[in-house]
Simulated scan of single mutants.
Amino acid sequence: MKQQPIGVFDSGYGGLTILKEFIHTLPQYDYFYLGDNARAPYGPRSFETVYRYTLQCVQWLFARGCPLVIVACNTASAKALRTIQQNDLPRINPQNRVLGVIRPTTEMIGTFTRSNEVGILATAGTVLSESYVIETKKFYPHVKVYQEACPMWVPLVENNEYKGPGADYFVEKNVKNLLGKGKLIDTVLLACTHYPLLKDKIRAYLPDHISLLSQGEIVAKSLEHYFERHPEMESRCSKQGTVQFYTTDSTEDFDAHAATFFGKSIHSEHVNIE
């Protein structure tokens, strides 16, 4: 089969923090990044809406030749991924694959905790899905998982207020709420790709003994291991070290915000998805 780029999809900018780690760990591959900014945020939307939007974006990347799509969005992974994998993929293209960010994270999270109590900071949609609770129990039945929805954090990041004093109020409130739910929590996971930008503020409200985890490195290492286990998929991914960026909204706005998440300036193209 012809080699083609790996597709990386997110509802907006946050998935760029995952893509950044992919490129750091696996720089030899080509990547297409698609941000559905015109319809973001996904967090407050219904399961049915998130599923429909996610499927449309996955199909768009498939149509551009991507044999593998990474749903680098926790909300979409929680609300849509399993349905797409089980119901749609066999019909659309059974040779292709769609992976998410929740399973690889939960496969590893139990290795970080000694108290067997883990805290999850996430969007309301991810929390309501209970995906992290369900998936963690599969790998680590003895680990207790406590969740806290942080609905203001994504708007703070996307409106460039994450460094300001206004962010401290919401960060402190949500972190204290989480720690109040599990007195022995020693590991906290940032279960949204926007949240690494708030990492310094979050760290300030956590006791020193609590580990704070971002997903990027975990998911990138998981993709590397996936290719080792599935050479038939790895051989279908092109290797020129290129990256192309696409957005469903304003390219000027996307490019301006993307540098914050990706770490350097980028140039995107506008696409329509229906």
Rank of each mutant, 00 (worst) to 15 (best):
Q95G: 03
V127Y: 07
S129R: 10
W153C: 01
P94T: 05
G119W: 12
N96G: 07
V143A: 07
N160F: 08
V127A: 05
V127L: 04
T126V: 10
Y132D: 08
L81R: 07
G100F: 01
I92L: 12
I120L: 13
E148H: 03
V145L: 13
I120T: 04
T111G: 12
L81K: 08
N116G: 04
A80H: 10
S129E: 11
T106N: 03
P141Y: 05
K137C: 09
T83A: 15
M108E: 14
V101K: 03
V133D: 09
Y132I: 11
K144G: 03
P151N: 05
E130Y: 11
P141D: 06
V127F: 06
V157F: 06
R114W: 02
K163N: 14
R82C: 06
T123R: 00
W153N: 02
R114Q: 15
R103F: 00
T83F: 03
Q86G: 03
V133L: 14
E107M: 15
K163C: 12
I92G: 02
L121W: 08
V145Y: 02
G125T: 10
Y132A: 10
N160C: 09
V133S: 10
A122K: 02
V145W: 04
R103G: 05
G119K: 04
K163G: 15
N159I: 02
C150M: 01
K163L: 14
L99I: 08
E161A: 07
S129I: 03
G100K: 06
V118M: 10
R82I: 04
T106Y: 00
L156W: 01
M108S: 10
Y132S: 08
E117I: 02
G119R: 07
V127T: 08
N116I: 01
P155T: 00
R114E: 14
M108A: 12
E161V: 00
N96S: 14
P90G: 04
G119F: 07
L121P: 02
R103H: 02
M108P: 00
L156N: 09
I109K: 02
I134R: 13
